[in-house]
Nucleic acid binder design. Structure first.
Length: 291
DNA sequence: ACCCAGGCGGGCG
DNA sequence: CGCCCGCATGGG
């Protein structure tokens, strides 16, 4: 892969690249993740590509992030990177807000430094429209195929634009592995290819969610993922099977709860950072295989 | 061969 | 409301 010479580094505190990028929220990897003391990964956004190497200081929750990029101006690249790594949130404050019970405190301890990554709305929408009734491994394969097929830009493979997907045929989208979701993605792209998705930033969480849920293929869970990972609306609380099972088991003695009941519980318990609590619970349930 | 996957839409009682 | 079913596709 070709990178230009633009690069930089910064010191990251209370940060884990491994936990952040192995927790199912980022589906646009290009390169592999290495584990251990030195971690690295490559990913693309709609504007360019990044490579990140993280060297952790021994025995401390801090280290040095070295990064390089291509396809963007320096200032845009830097702010995009910070959001993609989740460095824009004050995580100590978040921990204080959500770490009120033993379960969440344990999850935070186990996955200390895991951040919520914020991409752009379109990228998040594409990835999570592709995610329904699918496995994380396959979603990643699909996004890589979309990048390679529709995301060529000045010799780089970036995540395809909304307009590029709107112009693509349903059949060509299916050939990327989207299956029955191809139609959903195309319809969504067509709806936003002119006006863009940025106007939803100004709407309340509830308003924006009901707008997104108008589309075929976007229900309660996918809408929450888009709002959380695409817009940074941290009150969103995506409820997938893992979250539903573990909330019922860990907070309701195994009693079954409706989706609305879980939303109410999460809003009351975790407030404006419910999305963070969700991410820690999701990772905790999966890594510890809590069913 | 068989099962399942960070759900959703539609139809039923 | 709650419940049940089918769904494209590929990895385990």
């Amino acid at each position: 892969m070709q990178y230009n010479s633009a690069s930089g580094e910064f010191r990251a505190k209370d940060f884990s690249l491994l936990h952040t990028y192995s927790s199912g929220q980022t589906l646009n990897f290009l390169g592999e993740m290495t584990t251990g003391k030195l971690e690295s990964l490559s990913f693309s956004t709609t504007s360019g590509i990044f490579k990140v190497i993280y060297a952790r200081a021994k025995g401390r929750q801090e280290g040095i992030v070295k990064w390089s990029y291509a396809g963007m101006q320096a200032s845009a690249a830097e702010s995009t990177l910070m959001q993609m790594l989740g460095m824009h949130n004050d995580i100590k404050h978040v921990y204080k807000q959500i770490g009120k019970d033993k379960i969440m405190a344990r999850a935070i301890r186990q996955f200390y430094g895991m951040r919520l990554t914020k991409s752009d709305p379109w990228l998040a929408a594409s990835c999570f429209i592709a995610s329904q009734y699918n496995s994380i491994k396959r979603i990643r394969q699909i996004t890589i195929k979309l990048i390679n097929k529709f995301g060529r830009k000045n010799g780089l493979s970036v995540f395809p634009s909304c307009k590029a997907i709107a112009k693509a045929s349903e059949g060509s989208l299916r050939s990327c592995g989207l299956g029955f979701r191809a139609k959903y993605l195309k319809e969504f792209a067509e709806a936003y290819s002119e006006q863009g998705m940025d106007y939803l930033y100004a709407l309340s969480y509830e308003k924006a969610k009901s707008e997104l849920m108008q589309f075929n293929g976007i229900g309660d869970k996918v809408a929450d993922c888009i709002l959380l990972f695409g817009y940074g609306k941290t009150e969103a609380f995506p409820i997938d099977v893992w979250i539903k099972r573990s909330i019922e088991k860990l907070y309701f003695k195994g009693e079954r709860q409706s989706t609305n009941a879980i939303h109410s519980f999460a809003a009351e318990r975790f407030g404006l950072f419910a999305g963070y609590a969700q991410q820690y619970l999701y990772q905790y349930a999966r890594q510890n295989n809590i069913k």
